[in-house]
Nucleic acid binder design. Sequence first.
DNA 1: GTAGGGTTAG
Length: 502
Amino acid sequence: MFQRNINRRVTKTKTKTVFLHLCPPIHSFFLSYRNFTAQSTSALDTAAAAADIATLVLESDPKSLRGSLHGLPLQFTPELVDKVLKRLWFHGPKALQFFKHLEYHPSYAHSSSSFDHAIDIAGRMRDYKTVWALVARMRARRIGPSSKTFAIIAERFVGAGKPDRAIRVFLSMREHGCPQDLHSFNTILDILCKSKRVEMAYNHLFKVLRGKFKADVVSYNIIANGWCLIKRTPKALEVLKEMVERGLTPTITTYNILLKGYFRAGQIKEAWEFFLQMKKREVEIDVVTYTTMVHGFGVVGEIKRARKVFNEMVGEGILPSTATYNAMIQVLCKKDSVENAVLMFEEMIKKGYVPNLTTYNVVIRGLFHAGNMDRAMEFIERMKTDGCEPNVQTYNVAIRYFCDAGDVEKGLSMFEKMGQGSLPNLDTYNILISAMFVRKKSEDLVVAGKLLLEMIDRGFIPRKFTFNRVLNGLLLTGNQAFAKEILRQQSKCGRLPRQFKL
DNA sequence: GTAGGGTTAG
């Protein structure tokens, strides 16, 4: 019922259906994908309403937005608001505007989960003032901040290259009225380790606070994995020793972390010996162990050994998982042949496995890589038929290989097919912008410029290199006015080269 | 959002 009302409201504003290389101004292409059909179930209702509200936010005049939102004939719910925020993910300022207007809504109050989303968005934009303002408001309303909130903030600081600030965020939790515990301790350790800051995690947090929080197996596993991620397996072994000394029993996860660590560090012999040790001792080897072995052997080209391990596991009573098949298929593509990979794919289906997104993407990449464009496209169609929608990676692979093969038109047409669950990401834009230089055509450079502006509009910050390349291209082809616009944007992004002044 | 396996450019 309310669906129709929103639609009427939205359709009043003028819609620009745009394929970006045809007509400026740059406009988010998914606006042309709006779907106004009435949906039957409530989950779909929420999704459709979220899409409509997101469009409303994007198209409304900022001054009238609050009125429009407050006047909507529908009841906002936390689920709906979260979905809208997700839709506006790449329009940070708009998303925060929407969030703020709803804070003054007469009959709706934000949930803690929506606050977390808003904080995540502000953090992504590196707008820390807003981050802390939101935290304060959460606290004032007594709906947080929670340890999840702090994990989000810490992650954003780490992502912005400020791990020391992430640590301070963790240490300040109590000041913000949020108790710390072993969980939150492990979470911050993991965030640091996953970003390859194990040294910092170990020295500044783990060593100092492991007594206070009573570090457990999980804490030690996180640190061991941290060392493995930067290929320092001897340090991971030390951690293993240390945990045993402190009376903790390593789990199968601990061993799998080390096994993977050996492969990652290129220590194939050590990995094999470690695997034998695991079998010899009373460790319950599991499917993860086998998948690690298959993948590890495969990536160094030891296909026979990979196959042997793969066959052996069934004998041991451990069934391969989809991930095991994915590992096998991937290494066949890379070190054997796509034909054999496709055979493996068909075999898994015959055995009743359901391929997932990764399975398809691995096969599709393999086919493109082998120059089998048509078969790759057939697989993309096949996955859709199987109810598995292509994602960003699927499209990025297709776009990359078409462009590399000189078929820029086909690359662009794939780009235009993206939507909903597969919005372009930073890679997509980088691939496409690079492709605009191969034909050395003036029109292509204009498209490159438009893509650059669109990516900025979506919250991606292009590298200085990308800016300069596009800028030079435009200047050389006589597009001075457009170049000037790009330069203005570059300055806004803080990526201005020294010699330029506006 | 406390840990381990499978997509990312030769």
